[in-house]
Design a binder for these strands. Structure first.
Lengths: 354, 354
DNA sequence: CAGCTTGCAACAATCGTTTCCAGTAACCTT
DNA sequence: AAGGTTACTGGAAACGATTGTTGCAAGCTG
């Protein structure tokens, strides 16, 4: 009655062979006679035996699992990344442990440590901050392969890390260029936390002005990637002495807040005010009028991040020296994925421009 | 150079005590002298020792991990559930393994089996199908605690399972009632796969007609929870001999398709046609006009599912008999969470109703 | 002071695998 | 026919923890 999972010893007993032979059969060792293989497989089938991955991991020193640390999985952006990553990892035989850092760097480090205790083979990280001392110290001290997702460790970090980055800058340059060419001069940029994506977007905006030799008559409001900030920033930008005629929201959460405020004021998007957002979500396509976006393939980002991590594992396999795997001390790989500006009717010439 | 994680033996050696003593200190065993505790803790701190959860799990026969099987994490609905579940599990000291079934029942069973090999303590399941024979057989054969999320196993399933369900029916009854009271009679309902949420929504619609003693002049189109189906179904319903004057989309993916088709035809929502969707997403609130929805708290759903699973674990703890935990054979718990209809301007009297 | 309990720490078995090592038998080679 | 490979197989030691049992010394009681 008190049944327990059948283990290898039972299989060995039933087949009348040693456990080591069972192990060899199951792991495809070459030196196994056909007769032995048949007997073992028969016993395996009879008992419905499935190896215990826990014990296997302990012995083999690899868990075939990866830790995925993300700010908030309910954000469409991040869940698409997660989907891409999980699919790729799964195809390669790895399982994914997921945790939400709630945008708290302290939780980041805690979860990374926990995953290490669980002996994950690698980590996929969307850190809550790029310059948190605790996190940086932890990452510097660890030898676990990691891949950052759209994050760049603060200059001077002891460890330069592998990363998949989005080229926010070029998409933003095109977006702002489009607005400038429509005649806008006072463009308001709403940004999130001071991380790579914010810096790059700002740089993109500046480039667009500079390319056209225009005075920097833009305005920037930084804050958190939350609807509330999107809304507050919109108020700020519209209530300025010289109100913005076009808004650029640096993220879907910010867009939500901005739209809410615009609706509240009865401003018509694409007529009274122009609007661009970053990252495609259902609203941007379905809104009336459709909203221009700087687009990128987030699922691909997750896929590529997973692939980069997997390639690290493969690189390690090569080391037959001490038995335990040390990663070759090569220059970390950084992949840059494109972004693309999609013009839509939410962008129009500023009001009163003939 | 070839450093390995420090293990308990090193701690014991440094402290000059037996490994068993280190274990007892760390796991808070009562029979430990203050002196011993101090020595061990000093060694632990000196070495920065952290126990290996893999070995711990193997020995303790519990992994403190839970498998989360979902169709597609990039769907906002499911990622919100995941967020709620992960947060709750984490607070209780459990890690979450995530996998996407891609709405394929065969993958469902494969992943469940894999998770069992990884010895997860429990499973949170949003199955791809409620009547897949393989899945049902597997679940019947297993003793792992499980909680279904908005799923109901097909009648006759060997195992009645714990579940957190949403009361789609009552929200839908109110929604359709609202449309009927506005004067609509030909209401088109767009449904997804034949699962609980579809059945309940249909029942809700019927109730609304019956309550008012109206002839069943509605139309229903079943299919997959995908934008394509939403669009095709919309075409069908609008091109019928007696076209629908109001549409109800049974899911956010269906809404996307429906909206696309309506826009294509130049129909004005809330004027030429009325529209209701299920589950709040950013589009429903921000669309112009805002779209009425049958709302529910999906994050809460995830939370409650996790809590129900945790309570199963607690129930098992009680069994000190054989050492291995068998769940008491009680009636499975089923929790019903409310839904709420939110009327919005996307619903208006049918055109030409004076 | 004998005898018994009690508190604490060490020994050793165990969880379920993998893998090194040794040993056996058959097969060549000359 | 003797010696050397080669192809398998079994035994046992890990992997890194937990825990039941045992043993030892000190603290009681009468």
């Amino acid at each position: 009655m008190a049944q327990t999972r059948t283990n290898m010893r039972e299989v060995a007993d039933l087949a009348g062979v040693a456990m080591s032979s069972v192990s060899r059969v199951l792991s495809g060792h070459p030196d196994v006679s056909p007769a032995m293989r048949a007997r073992v497989m028969a016993a395996v089938d009879a008992l419905g035996y499935q190896p215990d991955l826990l014990a296997q991991s302990l012995r083999r020193k690899e868990t075939r699992s990866v830790g995925f640390v993300v700010g908030d999985i309910s954000n469409p952006l991040q869940s698409q990344i997660a989907l891409g990553a999980e699919t790729t990892l799964r195809d390669a035989g790895y399982s994914m442990l997921l945790t939400n850092s709630e945008n708290d760097p302290a939780l980041d480090t805690r979860h990374i440590r926990l995953f290490q205790q669980r002996r994950v083979d690698g980590l996929l990280l969307s850190l809550a901050a790029e310059d948190d001392p605790q996190t940086l110290a932890l990452l510097a001290a660890t030898t676990t392969p990691i891949v950052l997702m759209d994050r760049e460790l603060h200059n001077g970090a002891a460890r330069r890390a592998n990363a998949i980055l989005s080229d926010h800058r070029s998409g933003m340059r095109d977006a702002v260029g489009h607005l400038l060419d429509l005649g806008h001069r006072r463009i308001g940029l709403i940004l999130g936390q001071p991380m790579r994506f914010s810096r790059e977007r700002l740089e993109g905006l500046k480039s667009a002005y500079e390319e056209r030799s225009l005075a920097p008559t833009y305005a920037v409001v930084e804050g958190q990637l939350e609807p509330r900030h999107g809304r507050a920033a919109t108020q700020t930008l519209l209530d300025a002495a010289e109100p913005a005629t076009a808004l650029v929201a640096g993220g879907n959460q910010l867009l939500n807040g901005a739209l809410a405020e615009l609706q509240q004021r009865g401003l018509r998007v694409g007529a009274d005010i122009s609007l661009v957002s970053c990252d495609e979500i259902s609203v941007t396509e379905l809104y009336q009028p459709p909203i221009a976006v700087v687009r990128r393939d987030t699922r691909e980002l997750g896929r590529r991040a997973a692939e980069l991590l997997l390639s690290q594992f493969a690189a390690q396999e090569e080391d037959p020296e001490t038995g335990l795997r040390t990663s070759p001390d090569v220059e970390p790989s950084v992949v840059l994925l494109p972004t693309e500006f999609v013009a839509r009717p939410s962008c129009a010439p500023p009001p009163g421009s003939a």
